[in-house]
Design a protein around this nucleic acid. Structure first.
Lengths: 221, 221
DNA sequence: TCCGCGGCGAGACTTAGGTCGCAGACCCCC
DNA sequence: GGGGGTCTGCGACCTAAGTCTCGCCGCGGA
């Protein structure tokens, strides 16, 4: 593992070489296949993780098996930092959406690093602040917005400029995946697509969503 | 202001007298009447606050005026700490539920204190971890539980042992207040009460909820 | 080539929850 | 003691969203 790679992690950006070196010795590697479960909610927390490649979904499960995705962690993202500071169990489940490579740092190790290097603590605080904003927005969305509006919002977040002025989706989710991100049933996603198509916001090109107009999508919020 | 009072704030618990002294000079006082708005979402953040007495509700507003309460801060609770670390605007609205007295610390002052005293940073990290858990549970509840179940949960949280083996509510909310905590319409609260009454979990003693059995309530989750 | 399986489209139906309207109870304040 | 504002209790109604059940398509493996 190269020290420059550590720099790509937001928490460690501002640290000098000596500290990075110390951290490096504490990092272990994990490789997972598509669909593998990394840990489950409620069990004692072992470590926090950083995604190097691939994608990991962080989600809650209802007693009857429904899934609510809290977020999808991609390269550079961290997850399971919370138990470092309150010694509690894992707050949610983690499972790969596609094959992934991760770095892990054990809870106690990370805790010690934070205590010894205040700069890391500030980094964590910034990151936590962002997450808190994110979750309050999520609560707001669930309680105020209709399913179609939540889907429109998700599509906006997934929209990406394809080289030449057009729009495409960063990745192709299945409808089931979108449903559990947005907190609804699979069938609703299809209906939301049709509603958005009627408004001229998207186009359905045989099983593929094409974003026609960002503005029209934004009007649906 | 007495230095012991500062100790009652979780963030400052582990600090020594010298540091507490420094903090004391930065604290300002605020007194608010019932129903007064302290700040609104989106405007530049001035300060973080600690509740000394009274209650402040932290909430989001929908475009059409519906209210979603994120939490109700009582004595000892802090709010609006997020903007300290990301320089962003206020993440929500704050308004008193009843007359309240607060301490405030300006954003930049608090930021400097945290940077100079790593112990405070750790305190904030613990508190943020707790809040993150709280909000993920809130998301979970909104997406998995029915209104009745959310109401039952709220009542359980509000339940308090009255000296002699019985149960009472910590405070009397109006149905409207409960509705915006739980994320629903006022009428639904009444219906949920009736459902819970039929299950023998509560009793409605003319406009007053009496908890009959904690176990029966828990069964409704 | 054919089969099986995961993902999708679509219609019919059910249901939880939101909306509306109004009336009675209560409470404070004048 | 009267009167307006707030809170509650319904009932009727409406609608968004969840559920169930198909049949189809497309793709990959045997």
């Amino acid at each position: 593992m190269l020290p420059e790679q550590l720099k790509s992690i937001a928490y460690f950006q501002d640290l000098d070489a000596r500290v990075l070196d110390r951290i490096r010795t504490r990092v272990f590697e994990v490789r997972l296949q598509k669909g593998q479960v990394l840990f489950t909610e409620g069990e004692p927390a072992q470590a926090m993780y950083v995604v190097r490649s691939g994608q990991v979904k962080i989600f809650k499960l209802s007693p009857d098996g429904r899934e609510q995705v809290l977020r999808i962690a991609g390269p550079g993202d961290c997850f399971n930092e919370v138990p470092i500071f309150d010694e509690g169990p894992n707050p949610a489940n983690a499972q790969t959406v596609e094959a992934a490579a991760l770095w892990g740092i054990r809870r106690a190790d990370m805790r010690r690093l934070v205590e010894e290097h205040p700069a890391i603590a500030i980094g964590f605080l910034k990151a936590f602040a962002g997450k808190l904003r994110y979750f309050t927005r999520k609560v707001e969305d669930l309680s105020f917005r209709s399913v179609t509006s939540r889907v429109a919002k998700l599509l906006l977040e997934m929209a990406e400029d394809d080289g030449k002025g057009g729009l495409r989706l960063k990745q192709q989710f299945t409808q089931q995946e979108m449903a559990s991100v947005v907190g609804t049933a699979r069938e609703m996603i299809g209906r939301a697509f049709k509603a958005l198509e009627k408004e001229g916001a998207i186009r359905l090109d045989r099983h593929r969503v094409v974003i026609v107009s960002r503005a029209a999508l934004a009007r649906m919020l």
